[in-house]
Structure formats: structure tokens, C-alpha cells
Amino acid sequence: MDSLTRAKRSTAYYLVPALAAAIAMRQLYLSHAYALTPWKGGGFGMVASVDQPRSRFVRAYLLTPLGTVPVEADAPERVEQLATRIRFMPSPERLNAFADAILDTSWIVDTAPSLRARVAPWRPPAPAAAGPPGGARPVEVSGVHVEVWRIRLDPSGPRLVTRKLTEITRARS
């Protein structure tokens, strides 16, 4: 290997740094095109913005004959996992996958303990158990509306304000 050419030596010197720079550039692109949080993705944008995953939140609303009902409690694990991924990068593919997962779940309207309507996933009753609370049947869902929000600090005050990053509405096909 003593006759290593200049090109080979340069490769050894610059291959890994070039890879690091390429991934950082990709992160910059994803951050601007798909709202990937600056904190993640290998672009070294951590600590540059309030816009970190824990400052983002997802809201989903079922479109039902009862009106628009927020998906609030006891979402299935898969829905929760997809919501977490959306907080890191709300790309259209992820938003659609999240919406589909919600649409694939059966939901019941659950008004207890508060009077405000919310929904909970309907699970088939166990053989020896009773049905869903109050004998409710799964509600008919025609679509879902998903919103991704971020928190921002308004230094005058100071106060925290919310800003919508993106949203989609997906109808049941």
C-alpha cells in the first residue's frame, strides 16, 4: 500500500467528511421541504430552534355524522407510534399513513367522565365481557383531519404561541 496514489489518499482523507456533509445537506433539504425538525437528521441543527420534537404536537379529528370529533384518548399503539414519527417529520407519506391508521380503527364516542365528546377506539368485546361502554356501537367515520402544530416563543411577554405546521384531510376510500 506504500504506492497509494494521491487519489486513494484523498479518498481516505475526505470520504467520511464528504459523507457527513452530504447527510447534513440532505437534512437541510428535508427540514425545508418536509419540516423535519432541525434537531434531528444529522444536520447539526440541535439547539438552534425551539422547534424540537417535544415542542410539536399532533391533532386529529374524525369526520362523523355527529360532526368533527377530536381523537383524544386511548389511541392504539400503532397510531401513537405514527403520531410520534409525524412530530419528527410530518411528510405527506407519514401523514397519510397516520390518517389511514386512524381510519382503520373502529371508534366509539365516549362522553364520560366529561360531557365533551371524545372518541376511544372500539375493541371487540371479550367472550365473557360486556361490549363497549354504554353498549355503544362503532361510529361511522367518513374521513379524518390531521394537523401538526409547533410551539414558538414570542419574546415580548414572553409567551408561548402555537403555529400550524401542516394539515391534511383524508377521506375513507
Binding site: 432541525p38 447539526f44 441543527g45 439547539v47 438552534a48 430552534s49 425551539v50 414558538r152 416563543l153 414572553p158
Partner: peptide, 19 residues
């Protein structure tokens, strides 16, 4: 990259992030 991100971020430059 870290410095560029911070320079490009208005909420970092005005101190909002650290606040």
C-alpha cells in the same frame, strides 16, 4: 453546520431559544 443553523435561525439570534 451548527453555526450556520444558528445564524440562520431568527429565534436563536434574538435569544428566544435560550429564553
Amino acid at each position: 453546520f451548527a453555526a450556520v443553523w444558528k445564524l440562520a435561525s431568527p429565534e436563536f439570534r434574538d435569544g428566544a431559544f435560550f429564553q
